[in-house]
Deep mutational scan, measured.
Amino acid sequence: TRVETATETAWISLVTALHLVLGLSAVLGLLLLRWQFPAHYRRLRHALW
């Protein structure tokens, strides 16, 4: 049971790290898009909202 718990903890930390990385890359990508294509971003936002 001790090994299982350790594996579970490792998986949880791995998944958390993955989610953090994905979230950060998504935010960075959005910022980059907004910085590179302001007109396109505004049009996209206008279409979405």
Rank of each mutant, 00 (worst) to 15 (best):
Thr1Arg: 11
Leu44Cys: 07
His19Ala: 15
Val27Lys: 01
Thr1Trp: 07
Trp35Leu: 12
Trp49Thr: 01
Leu30Asn: 00
Leu18Ser: 05
Leu24Ser: 06
Arg2Gln: 14
Glu8Val: 09
Ala26Glu: 00
Leu22Gln: 01
His19Met: 13
Val21Gln: 01
Ser13Gly: 06
Glu4Phe: 10
Arg2Met: 12
Ile12Thr: 15
Tyr41Gln: 03
Leu32Ser: 06
His46Phe: 08
Thr7Ala: 07
Ala26Val: 11
Arg45Met: 08
Ala17Cys: 14
Arg45Leu: 06
Val3Lys: 00
Leu24Tyr: 01
Thr7Gly: 08
Arg2Ile: 13
Ala47Lys: 09
Arg42Met: 09
Tyr41Pro: 02
Leu32Asn: 00
Leu30Met: 10
Val27Tyr: 07
Trp35His: 14
Leu20Met: 07
Ala47Pro: 03
Arg34Cys: 13
Val3Glu: 00
Arg42Asp: 05
Ala17Ser: 05
Val15Pro: 05
Ser13Met: 06
Ala26Cys: 15
Leu33Gln: 00
Val27Cys: 12
Trp35Ile: 12
Thr9Gln: 09
Leu33Asn: 00
Val3Phe: 04
Leu24Ala: 14
Ala17Phe: 07
Leu20Val: 14
Leu20Arg: 00
Leu28Pro: 03
Val27Asp: 01
Val21Arg: 00
Leu30Arg: 01
Thr9Ser: 10
Arg34Lys: 12
Gln36Ile: 07
Ala26Lys: 02
Leu33Pro: 02
Val15Tyr: 06
Gly23Lys: 02
Ala47Gln: 05
Arg2Ser: 11
Ala10Cys: 05
Gly23Ile: 15
Ala17Gln: 04
Val15Gly: 11
Ala6Lys: 09
Leu18Cys: 13
Arg45Thr: 08
His40Trp: 08
Thr9Arg: 13
Pro38Leu: 09
Thr16Trp: 13
Thr1Cys: 14
Trp35Met: 11
Leu44Tyr: 05
Val15Leu: 11
Leu24His: 01
Arg42Phe: 04
Leu14Pro: 06
Ser25Val: 10
Arg43Phe: 04
Val21His: 00
Trp35Asn: 08
His46Asn: 15
Ile12Asn: 04
Val21Ala: 06
Gly23Tyr: 03
Leu33Trp: 10
Arg43Gly: 07
Ala17Pro: 03
Arg42Trp: 08
Ser13Asn: 10
Thr16Ile: 15
Leu48Ile: 12
Arg45Trp: 06
Leu14Gly: 07
Leu18Trp: 07
Arg2Leu: 11
Val21Gly: 13
Leu20Lys: 00
Phe37Leu: 11
Glu4Met: 15
Glu8Lys: 12
Thr16Ser: 13
Trp49Phe: 00
Ile12Pro: 12
Glu4Trp: 07
Ala10Met: 10
Leu44Gln: 01
Phe37Asn: 03
Thr1Ile: 14
Val27Arg: 02
Arg45Ser: 05
Thr16Cys: 12
Thr16Val: 12
Trp35Ser: 08
Val27Pro: 05
Phe37Gln: 01
Leu14Gln: 08
Arg2Pro: 10
Val3Tyr: 04
Phe37Met: 09
Ala39Met: 14
Leu28Ser: 13
Glu4Ala: 11
Leu31Asp: 01
Gln36Phe: 07
Glu8Phe: 05
His46Pro: 02
Phe37Pro: 01
Phe37Lys: 05
Arg42Thr: 09
Leu48Cys: 14
Leu30Ser: 06
Leu44Val: 11
Ala39Pro: 04
Leu31Thr: 12
Ala39Val: 10
Val27His: 01
Arg2Glu: 12
Ala39Tyr: 09
Leu32Cys: 15
Ser25Tyr: 04
Thr9Trp: 15
Val3Ile: 12
Ile12Val: 13
Leu48Trp: 07
Val15Ala: 08
Val27Glu: 01
Val3Cys: 03
Phe37Arg: 05
Leu48Met: 13
Thr7His: 15
Leu44Phe: 14
Ala6Tyr: 07
Ala6Thr: 14
Ala17Gly: 12
Trp11Leu: 09
Ala10Arg: 07
Arg42His: 07
Val27Leu: 13
Leu31Trp: 14
Trp49Asp: 00
Ile12Gln: 14
Thr7Glu: 09
Leu28Asp: 02
Ala47Ser: 06
Ala6Glu: 09
Leu28Ile: 14
Ala17Asn: 03
Gly23Pro: 10
Ala26Phe: 14
Ala39Glu: 15
Thr16Glu: 03
Val15Trp: 08
Leu18Met: 13
